[in-house]
Design a binder for these strands. Structure first.
Length: 857
RNA sequence: GCGGGUGUGGCGGAAUUGGUAGACGCGGCGGCCUCAAAAGCCGCUGUCCGCAAGGACUUGCCGGUUCGAGUCCGGCCACCCGUACCA
């Protein structure tokens, strides 16, 4: 008999069979229910990494499982092919971003194919292909026409040395990553999509996404950040105008001790013209860049403008106006009033600049006269004090009273605000979807006629100098104005790659259609039933795709409420880290084990320092190449290990020992079925008479049917690690099952077939091999999912734990659903129970049928 | 800073969702097979006390609710993800 399973040979063979038969090529079929499984498509970086292997394995398990359940499964693959890495490669290696990208796609396609994924490759798309982005350009024009898209000025990180716009990740400690020069915030004309028009709808519809993780819905809800507040005007002393502020804590208005405006506020700009200190401060704030994290983490600083504003309800009170670096121009009006007693940031600010801290909300159990604020602002509920007409009210009532008064006398009005900002979609880069407009000195911004789409990127570009090659291209920019025919210039910015990934899920329905999405195909396949990807996309990508779905529906390009009916977010793949004594990172492939199991650098024999497990990354060199693993053990082993142990939504720790264990188990399943010493009944044989009466065979069948029920539930619930454990249990049991005879042979067929079917979605090549061993001519991929017999999955005898005062002292075996009296009698007869009771009288007995009996003494 | 999450044996994790904590795997120890090894097979393996029977302790830390808490509540600590131009 074959000692070992030849994974390489088998995997190549089955992949060829699936390919030849077109097993996974699908078309709409109104007769069958559809199921659309989608994993987040990869950026073509050059090679797949373990994160991809994990993501696509999970998706494939779902796709193959649903297929076995009779669904018409759409499972496509494509490439998120525009983006910065291609430009960086062009700069560093002198290759063209296009050829670099297409070569990477070819390499990664080969790697993904070797994983044996049940993908319909005929639907493959790449976002950098004109066949894809021409539709995006057409939609851009639709959105421009309807006003959903507009041009306005926006802030960018500007590298003054390289004279180029930097992404936030290219700004390191306030400096450009290449030039090292301090970056500055700069205002530039940009294109924006009015996602804020949909803020309320995007927020409200989160409630309909029942198959999304709560955490993602919460994150989106907080990101959209609906708030109900008050917009108020503080009259400026000595000026006609007032200062508009927005607040959600209008109950604390009488606790105001200053006002503050953003460094980008027009008021600040005005004063800066006469006040060099303010000008210097604004200049200083510009160097923080545009990243919210950097701005919020910077030390809270401000400068007094010298302006004074009058308290709207206490005209005799004048408050100073500061320019402060922690006020965001993007939120509210870019100006606030500071109430230090009840806001931590305001308190820190007030302490630093010696401003008063009058408390106006007093906790219910505190004495209003003695209540003072030390280092911590009081954020809780309480009773208003020192607040004129609000005194004695609760926070909620005070908000209401203040809003009413402000609206009545015209000092302010209620306003619903959102933290969400409009989506800036233009990028000053080459490798992205060209924006199809021209700038005409006479006609202004003119859309490129639809017949002239796509506007294609020029190939002859140079990356010798930093910045956008489209800007300095000798001819590409020049165009005739479609309006007046005069000389005009093309728009040289391209679209954010988040635009590309906002509708690719829909394009897969009809990847070669003349419209972005064919109406009938879209109606059949959409929405995506199960979307799978990393949590890192929980907010931006998913929110943009939800918005884009609405925008497309609004423009007649789609008819869909939400793009992703079900969402699953997977964890990262981690690995131990190794460093030499000198601190040099050592990759796992270079690690060997010494005699005392100490980890050594193989080449030198020097011991390495083992660090904690971290996300696989180039910088820590703790990356394991999936191709090496698949070369050594085969795709099934890599897939099996990916699904073992770690729950899919948590981080997975890749270990060499774990993979070896997975490989041993793949072989074990093979040997179990291939063993000629264990007779198996032919396919489709009827159950012999001997099966029903045999208790030993009954136990095997019980285990088999429990495995079916268990694995089915686990796959439905994304508990792949549990499913793997159950298959282990089944195999452990079957390994001991060596009975002979016709009845045993029939039971063995049922068991082995079940094993192949249950493991099939996870290790599909092995599954097909087992299926063939069991005498089937057809493919496992076409076989239906097994059904469990409810009679066999139910235990008639259950073990019930017996506790005394909540501590387990023994167990009793009872008939299922046994009455309390029977349970009590059996429990109180246990010597361990009587010993624990030590003669004390029983006060109470808590009995949960089939679970537990607790004696309280 | 803000928003969201995670924390259980030497390690990855399981736990019917408030009911026997540690399934399954990895590692380790012992044995079988072998001239030997690899592969495979069998057994043991949370910690502490005890020759043993047995007992005590144990789910990041502190406190609470409950007959009963890994699970619920309050407060901390550590790490991870996002923070709008990385994808």
């Amino acid at each position: 008999m074959t000692e070992r399973y030849d994974a390489k040979e088998s995997e190549a063979r089955w992949q060829a069979v699936w390919d030849e038969r077109g097993t996974f090529v699908v078309a709409p079929d109104p007769e069958r229910p559809k199921y659309y499984v989608l994993e987040m498509f990869p950026y073509p970086s050059g090679r797949i990494h373990m994160g991809h292997v994990r993501n696509y394995t999970m998706g494939d398990v779902v796709a193959r499982y649903k297929r076995a359940r009779g669904f018409n499964v759409l499972h496509p693959m494509g490439w998120d092919a525009f983006g910065m890495p291609a430009e960086n490669a062009a700069m560093e290696q002198g290759v063209h971003p296009g050829s670099w990208t297409y070569e990477n796609i070819a390499a990664m396609r080969g790697q993904l194919r070797s994983m044996g994924l049940s993908i319909d490759w005929s639907r493959e798309i790449a976002t950098c292909h004109p066949g894809y982005y021409r539709h995006q350009q057409a939609m851009f024009l639709d959105f421009l026409e309807s006003g959903l898209l507009y041009r306005a000025s926006g802030w960018v990180n500007w590298d003054p040395v390289d004279r180029t716009v930097l992404a936030n990740e290219q700004v390191i400690d306030g400096r450009g990553w290449r030039s090292g020069a301090p970056v500055e915030k700069r205002e530039m004309p940009q294109w924006f999509l009015r996602i804020t028009d949909y803020a309320e709808e995007l927020r409200a519809a989160l409630a309909t996404l029942e198959r999304w993780p709560d955490k993602v819905r919460t994150m989106q809800e907080n990101w959209i950040g609906r708030s109900e507040g008050l917009r108020l005007t503080f009259p400026i002393v000595g000026r006609e105008a007032g200062l508009d502020i927005y607040t959600t804590r209008h109950d604390t208005l009488f606790g105001a001790s200053f006002c503050a405006v953003s460094p980008e506020h027009e008021l600040a700009a005005g004063i800066a013209r006469e006040n060099p200190e303010i000008a210097r401060f604004i200049e200083h704030c510009r160097r923080t860049g545009t990243s919210e994290a950097a701005i919020e983490r910077a030390e809270k600083l401000g400068v007094d403008t010298g302006l004074r504003v009058r308290h709207p309800f206490r005209p005799e009170v004048e408050l100073p106006v500061y320019v402060a670096n922690f006020i965001l121009m993007e939120y509210g009006t870019g100006a606030i009033f500071g109430c230090p007693a009840h806001d931590q940031r305001d308190l820190d600010f007030a302490r630093r600049y010696g401003l008063p801290v009058p408390p106006v909300v007093v906790p219910r159990d505190a004495d209003p006269a003695g209540f003072a604020i030390a280092d911590e602002a009081y954020l809780g509920d309480g009773i208003l004090a020192n607040s004129d007409f609000l005194d004695g009210l609760t926070v909620a009532d005070a908000k209401e009273a203040m809003a009413r008064r402000a609206e009545a006398d015209g000092t302010g009005r209620r306003e619903v605000n959102y933290r969400l900002r409009d989506w800036g979609v233009s990028r000053q880069r080459y490798w992205g979807c060209p924006i199809p407009v021209v700038h005409c000195p006479c006609c202004g911004i003119v859309p490129v006629p639809r017949a002239a789409l796509p506007v294609v990127l020029p190939d002859d570009i140079d990356f010798e100098t930093p910045g956008n090659p489209l800007d300095r291209h000798p001819s590409w920019k020049r165009a005739a104005c479609p309006g007046c025919g005069g000389a005009a210039e093309r728009e040289t910015s391209t679209l954010d790659t988040f635009v590309d990934s906002s509708w690719y899920f829909a394009r897969f329905c009809s990847p070669r259609a003349d419209a972005p999405v064919d109406r009938e195909d879209g109606a059949y396949w959409l929405p995506v039933d199960q979307y799978i990807g990393g949590v890192e996309h929980a907010i931006l990508h998913l929110l943009y795709a939800r918005f884009f779905t609405r925008a497309m529906t609004g423009h007649g390009e789609l008819d869909l409420a939400e793009p992703f009916a079900g969402l699953f977010t997977q964890g990262m793949v981690c690995h131990e880290t190794y460093r030499t004594q000198d601190g040099e990172w050592v990759p796992p492939v270079e690690i060997a084990e010494g005699q005392d199991r100490q980890k050594l650098r193989a080449a030198t024999g020097e011991p390495v320092i083992v660090g904690r497990s971290e996300k696989m990354s180039k910088s820590r060199r703790n990356v394991v190449d999936p191709e090496d693993i698949m070369e050594t053990y085969g795709a099934d082993t890599a897939r099996w290990f990916m699904l073992s142990d770690s729950p899919p939504d948590r981080d997975l720790e890749w270990t060499e020992a774990g993979v070896a264990g997975a490989w041993r188990f793949v072989n074990r399943m093979w040997r179990l079925v291939a063993d000629p010493g264990r007779a198996v009944a032919p396919p489709g044989a009827a159950m012999p008479d001997g099966v029903a009466g045999d208790p030993a065979l009954g136990e095997i069948r019980r285990a088999v049917h429990k495995a079916i029920a268990g694995v089915t539930g686990d796959l439905e619930g994304f508990r792949f690690n549990r499913a793997v454990a159950r298959i282990h249990e089944l195999v452990n049991l079957l390994a001991d099952f060596d009975a002979a005879g016709a009845a045993a042979a029939w039971v063995r067929r049922e068991a082995c077939e079940t094993l192949a079917l249950l493991a099939g979605p996870m290790v599909p090549h092995l599954g097909e091999s087992l299926w063939r061993l069991l005498g089937h001519d057809g493919l496992l991929a076409d076989a239906p999912w097994p059904e469990s017999d409810p009679v066999l999955t139910r235990d008639e005898i259950v073990t019930v734990a017996v506790q005394v005062m909540g501590k387990t002292r023994g167990t009793i075996d009872l008939e299922r659903d046994a009455a309390q009296e029977a349970a009590e009698a059996a429990a109180l007869a246990l010597p361990t129970v009587t010993a624990a009771l030590a003669g004390r009288p029983i006060r109470r007995i808590v009995f949960v049928p089939n679970r537990i009996l607790n004696v309280v003494a």
